[in-house]
Design a protein around this nucleic acid. Structure first.
Length: 97
RNA sequence: AAUAAGUGGAGAACCGCCGCUGCCAGUAUCGACUUCAUGUUGUCAUUGGUAGAGGAACUUCCCGACUCCCGGCCAUCGAUUGCGAUGGCAAGGUUGCCUCACGAAACAGCAAGUGAGGGCGCCAGACCAGCAAUGGCCUGGUGACUACAACCGCAACAGAGAGUAGUCCCGCCAGCGGCCCUGGCAUCCGACCAGGGUGCGGGUAAGGGCUGAAAGGGUGGGGUAAGAGCCCACCAGCGGUCGUAGAGAUACGUCCGGCUAGGCGAGCGUGCAACCGGGAGCAAGGCGAGUGGGUCAGGCUGGCGUGAUACACACUGGUUUGAUCUCGUCGCAGUGACUGCCGGUGAGGCCGGAUAACACCCGGCAAACCAGGCGUCACCACGCCGAUUCAUCGGUGUGAGACAGAUGGCGGUAGCAGACAAAAACGUCUGUAACAGAAUCGGGGGUACAUCCACUUUUUCAUU
RNA sequence: CGGGGCGUAGCGCAGUCCGGUAGCGCGCACGGUUCGGGUCCGUGAGGUCGGAGGUUCAAGUCCUCUCGCCCCGA
């Protein structure tokens, strides 16, 4: 997946989820978006306010379970220094989405 | 019993927690309208309840409902600056052997597609007749089956020749031109005349050969130097007139014609025939606001959350100021019945007008019908409330409907599949489904599909 | 909801309109040139024309269905 973020100078953050036709057909694009949305929903309390974030799905997400997607998502947020409190971020492993 | 194919049906279970979208109800805040009080309604927050993808939702090959837009020329009639009605033509569109049926849902009509029967052509097989060529008949298969005899266009290579056919080889010919020989004109030569030869030029497409997917009727006679539909008779084939049979395609018969015409109408050219108003699509379109609404920022004020609680910060409703952008809403939602009302359609029917009369036509009526609206009732699924004989009854509520587009995540149980282990069972671990996601609705066709069930058929094995 | 286009050799494209030989450039292989490499010269290999069916004597080309990809309009 790809994370694009930009400071919006608002007291809250906004999120967008995108899956292009390269990801697959309508069913597969819907599933990719839902996985990303659920992963962000569980992290809402730990994400800094004042940012616009867009998560872009890549075709490899279809082969991953939700846990793998969630780990990748957390790792991306930590890399962008968008997490507020200390969240247990798993260490980097070999497989990277 | 296994296997494969086809057709039809089913096509993802249950419980808990968190989350999303619509609707309903309660609570609270603020605003608007109204009232003597009350109340109605909108928005946001929050709580509870409830509903929430498919057989193909895919595809877009089609049709319809529904909505909007548009229409050339001529004639007649009525009106008399635009217009309306009727008829015709043009343009455009569709179809292409015939009939019937399905698709086909108000009268009529309706496509993609499908079925049955028939006609004609072609192919294969059996039988019959005949020495044979061939013909007849039956069965099966197959055909996008209007016309290349209106026009335009196309055909590589090979071959003599491929579109008003053509002489390359073998043949045939001596009428014509040339050459040679003989004879005649008293003699020689030339010319001329007669006869013969030659196939060089030439004629000949009748016979054979060669090339190719394809090479321009058959028999007999006349005719000719030799031949040729060159001419004639008959036959085959083609076009047409008329008659008979049939619902029609068409078949049979008759006469006439020109004598032969080859192939490709899947060549999106074109001609012909028949039929038909056309086009766009819910991003259709209607309504409202634009002094409105959305977004952002500031002020005032209410709610709620957090913290260190007379305060600060975040979010949010109302109001107001500024900037910026068009926005909101309807269309838009169970199934079925009642015909209760309204609306619509109304072929055929009835009545009236019109006519000498009938038909057409005009007006009306109503049966029947409808995918439209309202209303009532029933049913299905689920929830809530009440009652009781504890399984029913009664009451009540809901029925996907978004507008960057809602169905997801986690845990557990069961089932299934695989692996370990194993005589089997128990057990442990892993995985959890194929094709695929609603956007106005309905219907037909096509395509994709794990697994299960039913039926039919193919093949193999076992038993009798 | 409607309209249009593309698919041909490893890659990029002609040929399709109007049927008959599948070709061009780069790349690849071999040989030559050079002390060696590149450049250059010569020779050569390589394509079920997305798939299925049909029309035709003959289909990359025409027709029908189907698969994949791309674009446009409201």
């Amino acid at each position: 997946m790809i994370l694009v973020y930009l400071r919006n100078d608002l007291p809250y953050s906004r999120f967008g989820f995108t899956a292009s036709r390269r990801v697959g057909n309508a069913v597969q694009r819907n599933r990719a978006r839902r996985l990303l949305r659920e992963s962000i929903r569980l992290q809402l309390d730990h994400i800094e306010a004042g940012w616009d974030l867009v998560l872009i799905a890549r075709p490899a997400i279809l082969k991953q379970s939700f846990q793998q997607v969630d780990v990748s998502c957390k790792r991306l947020l930590a890399k962008a220094h968008l997490l507020t409190s200390s969240v247990a971020v798993p260490p980097e492993k070999d497989e990277i989405l």
